[in-house]
Write a protein that binds this DNA or RNA. Sequence first.
DNA 1: CCCTGATTCGC
DNA 2: GCGAATCAGG
Length: 197
Amino acid sequence: MSWTDERVELLKKMWGEGQSASQIAKELGGVTRNAVIGKVHRLGLSNRTTSASAAKAAEPKEKPAPAAPKVEAKPKPQPKTEPARPVTPVEAAPSGDSRPTTPARKQIIPAGQPLPPQPSANEISPEALAKVNEIEKKAKRLTLMELTERTCKWPVGDPATEDFWFCGLPVQQGKPYCEAHVGVAFQPMSARRDRKR
DNA sequence: CCCTGATTCGC
DNA sequence: GCGAATCAGG
């Protein structure tokens, strides 16, 4: 793959939006994050005020200084312009009953505790649900204590019963859930589709 | 260990 | 110009 105008443009756009090099590379396809980073540098756009390493490479080992005129004409302090960040909606806080929806919820009803009606929770694409049902078979079934940064925090079952655990599969980068659960947690809002059956 | 970006350098 | 390898940090 080569850096066509379109690809470069997308690169610029995404980079500007604060997307990571790996995400951009993934989106573009055919390139590695290294390629993206390399290109970013060549294009001149580099440090965004973002996480991770900001400017550590600020001290190269030794520079023979081949008469580098220091062509830096960019007195750009810090526009302090927070780029529109994607923002991650929820940080699953499995406390009490605050679960998004319980897909594979069994028909268990805690004695005397009728579950509150879950209105619009059934507007999830069948595909996504099916996917969830599948992965839940492989779920690590972790307890609250076992959850880590990279374990899916999707709750399964009812907290009031023994049938309660967290997915625990590897989370999707940056999200609190694994891929499958991200799929049902963050519905584009129009996964609507009338299956005629 | 996961991830991040930065730099180097042979191609 | 390109990007893998490497580096450096969180």
